[in-house]
Design a protein around this nucleic acid. Structure first.
Lengths: 133, 133
DNA sequence: ATCAGGCGTGAGAATCATTCTCATGAACTC
DNA sequence: GAGTTCATGAGAATGATTCTCACGCCTGAT
């Protein structure tokens, strides 16, 4: 279970550290290749999955179903406000929402509650460039 | 733009009306075939997409990325508490959450806000059958 | 009812992200 | 340093969804 420290895994982690926004596995693979780091696509997927299992990265699904990954500042539970165009991300938390969610679920006799709360929008920069065009 | 009323489209709508829970396009296709209704898979997808565009059905993504569809009682905006095992669904709404979401997003300068708020859990029935086993 | 034109249909191919396979290569242990 | 084990990578496989295109069934006008 000890995660081996390989060149590839290191490269993935570094790339994630430098990128502040949510990125897909495919995008990360592109980034690594462009950077000269030769890493197989399957390896990128494996590394990301391992990191996600270890709660080292957050995963969420884009509107088209693609998985997006991000190295978040805080490891505690939180949510995101993400720009659907550029992936720009703001971490947010909603204590009120957490409480609300578990109360509602429990009232219906549900167990093992998990909630998905994500906000999507267009960030100021993307709105500006869209206007220019 | 007038949606034609065909045998296939009718069959899809009827199946959705009878099924109270979220189902995937594949599952619906199976159901229809089992029922003797011959409907192509592509047609099921098209019908569901059309219904979703018309806000006649709600769509959400399962944890594995598959799209699930459901004919909801109310057409107004609302959320769901879904059993991840059997698809059993309870409609819920959270006025508090709505307000919270738009306030947070606006504070960060984001536009065109959209939010994803879904609750997943194990319903009482599924918990019981899991215990038996 | 009837007809014509257009939208809907279906089977299979195409697409796309993700996972699997398996032979080879690189880490960690002693 | 040697051996064992796990990670890697290229390509095949998978699975949901979409596309293609020839053909048939709605629908509105006659």
């Amino acid at each position: 279970m000890a995660a081996r420290m390989t060149r590839q895994r290191t490269a993935v982690v570094e790339a994630l550290d430098e990128l502040a926004d949510f990125r897909s596995a495919q995008q990360l693979h592109e980034t690594l290749r462009a950077r000269g780091e030769s890493v197989g696509l399957a390896t990128v997927y494996r590394a990301l999955q391992a990191l996600a299992d270890a709660s080292e990265v957050d995963v969420l699904r884009a509107e088209d179903g693609e998985s997006l990954y991000r190295r978040c500042a805080r490891r505690e539970h939180h949510h995101h406000l993400v720009c659907r165009h550029c992936g720009r991300t703001v971490e947010i938390d909603g204590p009120t929402v957490e409480a609300w969610a578990s109360k509602v679920a429990a009232a219906q006799g549900f167990d093992d509650i998990e909630h998905t709360i994500e906000l999507w929008g267009t960030c100021a920069d993307c709105r500006a460039s869209a206007a220019t065009k």
